[in-house]
Design a protein around this nucleic acid. Structure first.
Lengths: 332, 332
DNA sequence: CTGAAAGCGCTAACAT
DNA sequence: ATGTTAGCGCTTTCAG
């Protein structure tokens, strides 16, 4: 086990004081060029890298951002979260900040996690899904910089990043209308999550903006799962309403709905035009390929990382809503 | 910003020395029952939790395990890795160990990452994909406990967890043969990854075990992508060989192959029986639903976490191969 | 069984 | 511009 090189050794080897080494390491400019070079040479030669624990203890900064995924609500299986995580981790790493990943059930909020969420343990935290918002306010009050992915219930109280769910759903609906459809149904996502509510609102807005009425019988409540997509489509069809268009709140439910439509002998897009949401791989490989609302997921993670970095630096960054757009394929 | 409670405050509040508090916290038994209780009471009342940095500095243990995902090779989009990660993080957290997630390009192996991979910074590391194995040997030589997911090239030199890729592929092939198929083709995954090689070997073994010959013309090289699945199936068909069965090294390529088969007017499974690998969501929602080799991915992550915990504790755990089994659906 | 004291490696005043 | 000097909060000998 090769021992870790310490700052003191760098100091000795390059003939300066530990303080000077520390300055060079931390980008303090008031160090003479030659000594700085000597230090950097020694660092390279001896293969030095600072000890995180010591640095954290002395400076109060940990260089760590927690990424917290509430396993209770989230299906981490969903590639969505993996992509967001990738964006976050990559961006933070580029800034010398590490991501502490916690996949845990926040409902129980066990002691291990609670203890890790103190400002002394991490510089900031990024939350996936706003499940128990109260917890976030508590943490924020403790002085912990926090960023949330997805729109919280009280948007003004938290810093967050989100895709334009509302706008995307509206565009999808308006596109269907532009195609000549007039009886457009929707299958919603899990309505306890804000994204599903926004997508539903966007759907309604889309109808109204084109002078159509919202018909409650054309709204089926789903939960993003394949099965709920099937159930939703079945109940929609069984309601007896005429349907010539469908906006599903995600691609998986869209595919499920299409399978039901085909079983009933209805053609997509001829009889019913279908649009999904997420523009996932599923949208690309399904038959017919799905028209879907695209959102740049990795970019969302990158934005979350940028905001938390700014918040840690003491700024009060503005929440960000990323644009979404429609990708037209065969299903509509 | 509520200040962090320190060990010294616990000591004072409970009328014992810091050393005693530390002992209680770390489960040292030689502390009188009553004082231990007093300490625990104070800890609960004041809401104390130890400072990771300080503890790490004093003890040399960090309570951190790095989870390293080589972004160059891995499509982190693949839900596979998300699930493995979930398994790892959950298990580690249950043992009070945190996961440091690094999604990075190991090929460039930049300084930030290198520095974080020292035994002083983390207690151990779990790697996804064995890309540049040399790096792992280096780190292991430095005394860093390491676990790899997936079988490395020199299995004897590293601790790893994997699913039984070989056995799964063999079972898939033998199933096709049991269905009466005799001209079974395969589309491989990225053959630079060991899993793809093992799946190919399993396919060959399956043929041979049933007395069939391996026909090189029936082997198409893919890379796990949808497009490569299409290309592979097209070249297979264009080769002029008779084909009545297909083992695709993952579900995505299986779906791609099926789309080509249908375009050519071939029926699945009537004309060509198809089996995929991974038993992913894609397998369940595709039409026809895919027969596929199942592997318990989250369990793989849990196993990786268990092994790294053992390795950190000083044991020399044995590598683990988890069983795989076939899930039969409509495509075969 | 318990306490005193010495650091772990680094940063941040405070001097100079 | 640079060095000196205290610690940061915890664990761990070493005494007792």
């Amino acid at each position: 086990m090769t021992r870790q090189v310490t700052l003191a050794e760098i100091a000795e080897s390059s003939g300066v004081s530990p303080a000077t080494v520390s300055r060079v390491l931390n980008g303090d400019t008031r160090v003479s060029q030659e000594r700085a070079d000597a230090v950097r040479r020694a660092v390279a030669e001896l293969g030095y890298s600072p000890n995180r624990g010591a640095r954290s203890l002395a400076s109060g900064k940990t260089g760590l951002v927690a990424v917290i995924i509430d396993n209770n609500l989230t299906v981490f299986e969903d590639p969505f979260w993996a992509l967001v995580t990738k964006g976050i981790s990559g961006k933070l790493l580029a800034h010398g900040v590490q991501s502490l990943l916690m996949v845990t059930d926040l409902a129980t909020y066990d002691h291990t996690v609670a203890a890790s969420l103190s400002p002394k343990q991490i510089d900031g935290a990024i939350f996936f899904q706003v499940h128990r918002e109260e917890l976030l306010y508590e943490l924020a009050d403790q002085g912990l910089p926090i960023v949330v992915t997805g729109t919280p219930q009280r948007p003004e109280r938290l810093i967050y990043v989100d895709s334009d769910q509302f706008g995307g759903a509206q565009k999808a609906t308006e596109y269907l209308i532009a195609q000549g459809r007039r009886n457009i149904a929707t299958i919603t996502g899990d309505v306890f999550a804000s994204a599903a509510q926004q997508r539903l609102s966007g759907y309604k807005k889309g109808l109204e903006s084109q002078g159509l009425q919202v018909n409650p019988n054309l709204i089926a409540i789903g939960d993003y799962s394949f099965e709920s997509g099937r159930r939703g489509m079945i109940s929609l069809l069984d309601s007896g309403e005429t349907i010539d268009g469908l906006f599903a709140a995600n691609d998986l439910m869209a595919v499920a709905a299409i399978s039901v439509l085909e079983e009933r002998g209805l053609r997509v897009p001829d009889d019913v035009s279908v649009v999904g949401f997420d523009d996932s791989q599923t949208a690309q490989i399904s038959k017919p390929a799905l028209t879907s609302v695209h959102q740049d997921i990795e970019q969302l993670g990158i934005a979350a990382a940028e905001l938390i970095l700014e918040a840690i630096a003491g700024a009060e960054p503005e929440s960000r809503i990323h644009p979404t757009y429609l990708v037209v394929r065969e299903s509509s």
